[in-house]
Design a protein around this nucleic acid. Structure first.
Lengths: 186, 186
DNA sequence: AAATTTGTTAAATTTTTTTTTAACGTTTTG
DNA sequence: CAAAACGTTAAAAAAAAATTTAACAAATTT
């Protein structure tokens, strides 16, 4: 078996994982191309430049530029200080735990903030409406139902906030411990 | 203030929350239209038919049909047995806790399964390659690196599996308790 | 059994998103 | 300081996704 064939066998084996990573990354809101880029870089020890990426994936440089930015936004890629080269260098985040916590905390915090803001505003408005003394009975009943519904839902958002805290603090590992190594990330 | 104006004020107040729900639901992989449908139905006490939905949102019936299916897939909507009507009736899931657990458990289980399957296959292939006695040194080193990388990553997937278990069992509530009511869901 | 209702699938259209090519501004190098 | 390299933005093209209209199949009613 020639060296070339050996390399091809290795590449083929790695591609299975690259594809599965790209496939499941749709859950993190990235496109298949971006997922493929991450999967490719996941196996790299050294950093890559935009030009290397575009050659590797057979895509344009602006696409790589935007893909890299998208991956940086969800903390799956970091710009690393270029040694000799004047080009930007990037490395993939290989610690899935780190990624997991950063991603979901950010996601849930956004969900809590946007919805609690809206709920608070709506609650104020409904309470204002309920003050009206000429309020139609049907409207009042409807308004009270809506008010109760969103007020109840705040419990969920507060709970989500607490969950994020337990992720940030690392308390989650008391409940679900990490089997071995990789504990000392971040 | 006329009854009509009162109703409009209430609708306007509710719309703030409907919009915020629709906005954050992109995190759950649904389109804005589907998010708006869910937000609309969230405030409804009674079930809705496809025709009522299409009138309410000003969209076509096939769109409602597919939207409802998408929401059912992420457990945000249920078909409810029609009383008098022969049309299908649907109600939104209003318990966000229930939704949260069903959604993320399903999501994470899928991620674990797809990636562990791929990793196992790739591990077998790389180990097979490493058995070759005429293996080029550079290829061997590269193969061993890849093998170590994916083997380490299994710890993450096993941990994710455990996390899902603690969600399913309810153990998560020992760590992050629910403030008040809504505890007895599912 | 014919006609109607209901939900879904199929095809066509529209809209949105992704990707590329071209152009630009900044920095570096000679 | 001119020329080249680099990353990004802008505009155009291509691809993908969402939406609608049309057609269909199953069930129900008359």
């Amino acid at each position: 078996m020639s060296k070339k064939e050996q390399l091809e066998a290795l590449e083929s084996a790695k591609n299975t994982v690259i594809r599965s990573i790209a496939e499941t990354m749709d859950l993190y809101g990235v496109t298949p191309s971006i997922g493929r880029l991450y999967g490719t870089m996941y196996f790299r020890r050294e950093s890559m430049t935009l030009d290397e990426m575009k050659d590797e994936l057979g895509m344009s440089k602006p696409s790589m530029s935007t893909a890299v930015r998208a991956l940086q936004e969800i903390d799956m890629m970091k710009k690393t200080w270029s040694k000799g080269s004047r080009k930007d260098q990037f490395v993939s985040e290989k610690d899935f735990f780190k990624f997991f916590f950063q991603f979901f905390c950010k996601m849930w915090e956004r969900e809590v903030k946007i919805n609690l803001d809206a709920i608070n505003q709506t609650r104020t408005e409904i309470k204002e409406l309920l003050k009206q003394n000429d309020l139609d009975e049907e409207v009042r009943e409807e308004a009270e139902h809506s008010l109760k519904l969103i007020t109840d839902s705040t419990h969920y958002y507060y709970w989500l906030e607490d969950l994020v805290k337990s992720f940030h603090s690392g308390d989650i590992f008391d409940l679900v411990p990490i089997p071995e190594k990789e504990t000392e990330s971040e």
